[in-house]
Design a protein around this nucleic acid. Structure first.
Lengths: 212, 212
DNA sequence: CCAGAATCCTACGCCGATGTAGGAAAAAGA
DNA sequence: TCTTTTTCCTACATCGGCGTAGGATTCTGG
């Protein structure tokens, strides 16, 4: 049984790829492990086993465990950022704020639903102290990006007063709402399509922000 | 230097308390460690050092590391539940939905600000697999509690249609909004009092839910 | 004041994960 | 085909955290 069932049984010798071609595979395996058992479970051994390879092969790709996880976080963060940019672009066509919220959430949820694993990483929360700094930095980047979009938009649409003071709080609220949308999308909600969910939540969150 | 500066220097022999009186101290120390360095850093050794005691003393209070953390989570969850109950009670006096949201958030944020450590635990996210189950169970309990309050309230106030389908999504949104409020309260917002923040966010979230 | 009980501390063995060295197998080149 | 190079695997040493045994110290009751 060379394929499928990965019991702890004897493994076939892995293909002769070399570090450069092996590296993306390692990150894929690391992502699998992180999604299934949390970032804390991403050990060199676990990743190697997931990939069907021994640990030294992983060490040939990354100097140590921390660099491996940082590489994973880098890659996934870029993927996420791309999706966010696409979602933001999709809102540009409309001058109606409510419609902007709705289409933004719709395209974002649709794209996010296509690579659930990457997004679950974001919801997982930080693991051991070694990664914490890098993880928080990623979150901070998103916060900044969100602020850079929400601030001008609210100024332009509604001339919200005292925006300087309110903005940090609103950004936090916005990001948390996005998390809620994501959870609803990835977990239970089989009876919601991305379009339905995006419209429902986009409208609700728009109401919260409009008269802030 | 028997007090203060906890370098790694020689320690004084700890007082003769015994497991029963020592146990709450151990949980206090564990909470400190969790807040400072994350739940993943709550090892028996770290807790013992934080408390100024050797590891066997901790083992005299709890059978193993998992039971210690579970005891911590139990205690903190009860504290949290008490606060939530108080906040919910405070909304009962008013029949105006918006006012209910506002006073609810206000009392909750005020009480939460008094024991920040306990609440930061909630934001920290799950650590290793051993605790994950217990941690998720706590979150599920809050979800259920929120659903039990939001559902009837929305039915009574606004006769929201198709509530069965919407409720799970709305509960998720509500909890995430609470997290946002908490983050704003505990982190940056020095220029927001609990009353101001509760009014601002309570109103915003009320708008999101009213016409859902 | 002294025996006995309760409590704390030192010291140990164990296990899982890390990171490394050197030999075996596969690919590449002559 | 035979040699050289690349890549993978087995085996090892190390480290940190877990959990326990037994001696040292402090409290307590007579």
């Amino acid at each position: 049984m060379p394929t499928s069932t990965r019991t702890t049984a004897e493994r076939v010798r892995a293909a002769h790829l070399g570090p450069d071609r092996r590296r993306p595979q390692v990150l894929d395996a690391a992502l699998q492990v992180a999604v299934k058992r949390g970032l804390g479970a991403v050990t060199v051994g676990a990743v190697a086993e997931e990939l069907g390879v021994t640990r030294p092969v992983v060490y040939a790709c990354f100097a140590d465990r921390v660099q491996m996880i940082e590489a994973l976080l880098d890659r996934e963060q870029h993927r996420l950022a791309d999706v966010v940019v696409q979602a933001l672009r999709s809102t540009g066509v409309s001058d109606d704020p409510e419609q902007a919220f709705v289409t933004g959430f719709q395209t974002w949820l649709r794209l996010a639903g296509e690579q659930p694993g990457t997004w679950r990483l974001l919801l997982a929360g930080q693991p051991d102290p070694a990664i914490r700094e890098r993880f928080d930095a990623g979150r901070a980047a998103f916060t900044q990006q969100a602020a850079a979009w929400i601030g001008p938009a609210m100024q332009r649409w509604w001339h919200t007063e005292d925006l300087d003071r309110k903005l940090p709080v609103l950004v936090e609220l916005f990001l948390s709402s996005c998390e809620a949308a994501l959870r609803s999308m990835l977990d239970g909600a089989d009876d919601w399509t991305p379009e339905e969910l995006g419209e429902f939540l986009g409208r609700a969150i728009h109401r919260a922000f409009r008269d802030a």
